[in-house]
Design a protein around this nucleic acid. Structure first.
Length: 422
RNA sequence: GGAGAGGUGGCAGAGUGGUCUAAUGCGCACGCUUGGAAAGCGUGUGUAGGGAAACCUACCGAGGGUUCGAAUCCCUCCCUCUCCGCCA
């Protein structure tokens, strides 16, 4: 959510932001609701002030006296006027709030212009793509793949996109999760094991609701299975005011992530590329606004370090205005090269939301300078998503003998240096 | 799941229809005092919205209702505690 004052005072900044993100939003409609809301607020408050002063006067009068009775009669009109206006005020306020939620966050000045994924800038590459492996295949074509990753039985038991991980497949998942969590702890992120269902208020604060309702699994109790640990983690400090000395707060969490992914199809969804349930470790930061861009670069560096230690070829994209998302002010994507599929797989998305999420979730800190509460900046990124990293390891490390070499950093976690599929 | 008791400011805790921008205490900040500190004394101390400002308004778990007027009465929901049941 944007600052209503910013919109009021500099609507052109907001218009420019919408244009840069190639989105549609009616700024004038929001402005009109804003001024209607302000006018109604003034009216209601004036009527309330009248009620309050009458109330004080009546307290001093003997009950049942002619003056008292006259006052009651007089105030009945005011009372009904307040009720009438207040209904209008609440309606207008709801519409205004709803409209305000349709306005995207302002992209940072360093975000490149552009509309499509082709306009994203490759700002770093590490490790040359492994082109010279004639035996490389898509991971789901590795002989014996289904012995470790059983999609067929997953479909029987639950549905498409809910695979079983078996034997060394399951062990690889666990090894990666432990590796990620341990490395992140060394980088300063405190591990959290959060609830994996959240209520509607939490899903609203991080922006899953109301727009992306159909992308989450919902329970009969109106709880939502988390699409990412970002949701419970960010909401941890919802409606709280932190001491400035506590910033920055670094946390990470492993959760399974649940995504309905309605409408996905084709080669994007083959194998481990895209599934309905997957394991991910998420990194999250609450920081002082003055430091959020330094913190974003550090966050990206922390996620990159994981890929380097796994010896995976990857690149970093700086997302352009049109491809960066509604709530982000700046976003980097980390993509690993899957040499069998000969394509890049997104394994992390590192974003600075500035105060956009914090305003919606009301997460603030008390400024040491002014003593007043100010909104924190929130950042998050994957560190990392398991199935795609796994897919890249399988494809890049597949040997001519059909076994997969385990990256050295992962060997202590996995317990042996090769994966076998029979 | 059942029965009962509760939810008030940073904390404790009063307040059962009217001057409550919520008593009192603790904490915190500043000042006086002191060689310095403690104690003592004094002043101040929430969040949000509107307004150029003075100031005004809202907020006593959440939402709705009754009333000229609600922290206070009524209804619904949420949460906490105690006991019982069930259970890894």
């Amino acid at each position: 959510m944007l600052d209503p004052k910013l919109l009021r005072e500099s609507p052109d900044l907001v218009r420019a932001a919408i244009a840069k993100k190639h989105l549609e939003a009616d700024v004038d409609a929001v402005l009109a609701l804003d001024s209607a809301w302000r006018a109604l607020t003034t009216e209601v408050e004036q009527l309330r002030a009248k009620q309050k002063s009458a109330n004080s006067a009546m307290a001093a009068l003997p009950k049942g006296s002619p003056e008292f009775v006259a006052k009651v009669q007089e105030m009945k009109a005011v009372s009904s006027a307040v009720k009438e206006k207040d209904v209008k005020l609440k309606e207008t306020e709801a519409l205004w709030h709803e409209a305000l939620l349709t306005l995207p966050n302002l992209p940072h000045a360093s975000v490149p212009e552009g509309k499509t994924p082709e306009d994203n800038q490759v700002i770093a590459e590490h490790g040359l793509p492994h082109e010279g492996q004639p035996h490389a295949v898509a991971h789901w074509e590795i002989p014996g793949f289904e012995n470790l990753f059983d999609f067929g039985r997953g479909a029987k038991v639950t549905g498409a996109g809910f695979p079983f991980f078996i034997g060394e497949g399951a062990r690889l998942v666990r090894a990666l999760l432990n590796f990620f969590l341990n490395e992140n702890a060394l980088a300063g992120y405190v591990e959290v094991s959060p609830p994996i269902f959240v209520n509607a208020a939490s899903a609203t604060a991080t922006g899953q609701l109301p727009d992306k309702e159909g992308q989450m699994y919902e329970t009969i109790d109106k709880l939502y299975a988390v699409p990412t640990a970002e949701v419970p983690l960010t909401n941890f400090y919802r409606d709280e005011i932190l001491e400035e000395t506590r910033l920055p707060v670094y946390r990470c969490a492993y959760t399974p992530c649940f995504r309905r992914e309605a409408g996905s199809y084709g080669k994007d969804v083959r194998g481990l590329n895209r599934v309905h349930q997957f394991d991910k470790v998420e990194l999250l930061k609450w920081v002082h606004p003055a430091t959020s861009y330094t913190e974003l670069d550090k966050l990206r560096g922390d996620a990159e370090a994981l890929l380097r230690k796994l010896e995976l070829p990857y690149r970093v994209l700086l997302m352009c205005g049109g491809d960066m998302g509604f709530a982000q002010a700046k976003k980097y994507d980390l993509e690993v090269w899957a040499t069998g599929q000969k394509r890049w797989l997104e394994v992390s998305s590192c974003s600075n939301f500035e105060a956009f999420q914090a305003r919606r979730a009301q997460i603030r800190f008390r400024s040491a300078e002014t003593g007043k509460p100010e909104l924190v900046h929130t950042l998050n990124g994957s560190g990392l998503a398991v199935p795609r990293v796994l897919a890249a390891i399988l494809e890049n490390n597949l040997q001519a003998d059909g076994r997969v070499k385990v990256p050295a950093a992962l060997v202590p976690y996995f317990g042996k240096d090769h994966v076998t599929f029979n």
